[in-house]
Design a protein around this nucleic acid. Structure first.
Lengths: 225, 225
DNA sequence: GTCTGTTTTAAACATACGTTTGAAGCCAAT
DNA sequence: ATTGGCTTCAAACGTATGTTTAAAACAGAC
């Protein structure tokens, strides 16, 4: 097929370049020349650069959110009437991400980086698009987190969820670069799965931290407001 | 003084706009019109847009790294021959950041967001500049972390430090927006200090998480590579 | 008051961008 | 063979960007 070949080549090239360089820093000319298609093809097939960005996300997120919903369904069913634990919830998310069919070996890490960029680069249109299209599974995840951490006050939970999001988005958004640094330093190769397996315990521990440590050490100048 | 007035107004406007919109998405015309100076003033005083970006970072980082070095000096001295604990190290950093003289109330959160962007947006020149100019205090912080977490393998420590950086940069960088959301939801006011007081225990707990949780729950399809 | 070096200004420059155009190419159905 | 609807293509469009220029404005020293 001629059409979908061009469309897919554009999506592949765009996905990779966006992940490498960010959205604003990637021009349509870079994308089309990497995809070996004519410059006008993007506007012909997608309508605009922003619509292409949306399409890149939709190609991954639509099947992913379906997978995730199913994983949450199974998890809640297997738990009977008691809510899933924090660990179970985090792992359900992680596994859904890792098990997504990948276009190539970098598939998931490229996409993680894109998600990080989506959160980080304040592209208003992207944020709106993601909220509108994929807000439901996100809300569900939040509800599960709430049920899994009943010991936390609403305010504590709120902030700790932000911390989790931050650690995840940030790490994933620079994971290629970080992996390269680590490999240069130690010669150790790191897969996205391994990063996830290190991240989840970190998040779970932070989420469940006691608040005894809330008090700064003796002599600290940070005062409780 | 005419010069430094113009220079400072440019730096103020640039700092704020960069933090709001990122580097590539902020044009010199936006900056100069916000600063109410002539367009050419940037190239006259700084030489180029990239040099302006460097100057924005230097204005904050140079005094901050001095403060931080002093805090580390005091901390190590007060600890005698045994290394500072993780908690002490994190609090030394936090206090140095919070106590920096701020140009306005948003000062610290604006700058946190800039640091996050510096890490995220792959602006090669910025990364090189930061490493070159401020690599030393950063390395020292890393050494302290290493001494404070002898139980961690080098690889574990490496990734958990990335997670800490992520949670911090991400949260602080969007703390204004987050604070507003929280206030609208719960009517609770939150200061940067309070966020830090919630963040540090989260980080310390994550950093010191046992690795028993490294194993996914029963039935998980994520395999140890 | 005049001169000197610095700073500000308006205008222009070259380049890169996203997008549009209209013709050409293609392929299946008639 | 010809039609008709997609798709591709080279070229151009208008706009925005970072940077440069050369003249004007300014300030302090003599």
């Amino acid at each position: 097929m001629a059409q979908s070949d061009t469309v897919d080549r554009i999506l592949d090239a765009a996905e990779e370049l966006f992940a490498e360089r960010g959205f604003s820093e990637t021009s349509l000319r870079m994308i089309t020349s990497k995809a070996k298609v004519n410059l006008a093809a993007v506007n012909y097939h997608f309508g605009s650069k922003n619509a292409l960005i949306h399409a890149v996300f939709a190609r991954f997120l639509t099947p992913f959110s379906a997978t995730l919903e199913k994983a949450f369904d199974e998890l809640e069913e297997s738990c009977g009437d008691q809510p899933p634990t924090l660990n179970q919830t985090l792992w359900a998310l992680t596994e859904s991400a890792v098990r997504m069919p990948q276009r190539n070996e970098k598939g998931i890490s490229i996409f993680m980086r894109l998600l990080g960029l989506a959160y980080t680069q304040s592209q208003g249109h992207l944020r709106k698009f993601l909220e509108q299209e994929y807000g439901d599974p996100f809300s569900r995840f939040m509800r599960l987190l709430k049920a899994a951490t009943p010991q936390l006050s609403a305010v504590d939970r709120y902030w700790r969820i932000q911390f989790m999001l931050g650690a995840t988005a940030f790490t994933m958004s620079s994971s290629d670069a970080l992996r390269d640094i680590l490999q240069n330093k130690t010669g150790v190769e790191t897969s996205v799965q391994e990063i996830a397996m290190r991240l989840v315990p970190f998040l779970a521990a932070g989420m469940q931290a006691g608040d005894t440590m809330l008090v700064p050490p003796k002599g600290s100048k940070v005062s409780v407001a």
